[in-house]
Simulated assay, not measured.
Amino acid sequence: MPQVHTLVITGYGTNCEVESAHAARMAGADRVDIAHFSDLVAGRVTLADYNFLVFPGGFLDGDDLGSALAAAQRWRHAHDAQGNRLLEALRDFVTRGGLVLGICNGFQLLVKLGLLPALDGQRFDRQVSLSHNDSARYEDRWVHLRVNAASPCVFTKGIEHLYVPVRHGEGKLVARDEEVMNRLVSGNLVALQYADPETMEPTMEYPWNPNGSPLGIAGLTDPTGHILGLMPHPEAFNHPTNHPGRGRDETAPLGTVIFDNAVRYLHGK
């Protein structure tokens, strides 16, 4: 059985790397490492040694220039100790079938790098972005998510819905144009949508949709299904006691099922 080697990349402002690594270990990954972006630059860590890459949440570079934008520029222009572009290493990682998960700030990084949605295979071409919440404030609450069963996303296979927390100020999806938005829908690249808790239908109603994202879009995948970016935090619901309704005996599937699916897929199960 193939082994799953997971790398959680921290940066200048990430703060969810420990929970993300814990979720990967819970899922049965054979190796889980946490490494700073500077470790990649110095050559102490190489993407070629891994097949599961996680960009965790936080506030990269203090969200200067916009959420994760400065970090995206760093990825575009950085080289490792041998003079190789890190962007090419990331491209090779994706091309050989590695899985990539971007959570919250990690999702913001993926869209600004152009790894999502990568329509027509145009990786590193920015086609969508994530902008300020319609509420004009930071949102910290739990949300219901509807999973698109027709999506090619390997992370969400077999899941119908999730209940997980959000904590972000810039989570509203903005597409380059109407054609891009239409293709997100027609290609089933909208993997997750904010849902009304009563009907579990996608919603634009606040606070169930915490940021005003059109069509209730909470997460995107690419056409291969190997990359998932989502604003909510699945790694933050890693134990039943995390549930805000635990005192009322309320339950829900752990958000870490996202990691379970990734590890299971890479194990070839």
Rank of each mutant, 00 (worst) to 15 (best):
L116D: 10
A23D: 11
N51L: 13
R74Y: 01
V190C: 09
I258Q: 04
P232T: 03
P240V: 09
R76K: 05
R126Q: 08
L60R: 02
A71K: 07
L119E: 00
A149C: 06
Q122N: 13
P223C: 07
D260R: 11
T203I: 09
G169Q: 14
E198F: 04
D249C: 12
G247S: 14
G28T: 04
A27S: 13
Y194Q: 07
P244S: 14
Y265C: 02
A42R: 14
F93V: 05
T224S: 15
H77Q: 02
G216Q: 08
W75Q: 00
T221G: 08
L119S: 02
T221W: 05
R126S: 02
L53Y: 04
E170N: 09
V128L: 14
L119R: 01
A78S: 15
V190D: 05
V54Q: 09
T156P: 10
T241R: 13
L101Y: 07
L115P: 02
R31N: 04
H36N: 10
L53V: 12
A252E: 06
R141K: 11
A72L: 02
H267D: 00
T6D: 06
V128S: 03
T6N: 05
R74G: 00
E17Q: 14
E19A: 08
G225S: 04
R176N: 09
P197Q: 15
E179V: 15
F59N: 05
P56W: 13
L113Y: 05
I9V: 15
L113C: 01
Q108W: 11
Y50N: 12
A236K: 11
L189N: 05
H77P: 00
D64S: 07
M26Y: 10
L130A: 04
G28E: 09
L230T: 15
D49T: 09
A72H: 03
D125E: 01
C16K: 01
L192T: 02
S135D: 06
H132S: 09
D120S: 12
R183Q: 11
R183T: 06
R96H: 12
P223L: 15
E139G: 08
R167S: 12
H161L: 00
A23T: 12
N211I: 10
V4S: 06
H5A: 14
V190N: 04
L254E: 15
H144R: 12
A150C: 10
T95M: 06
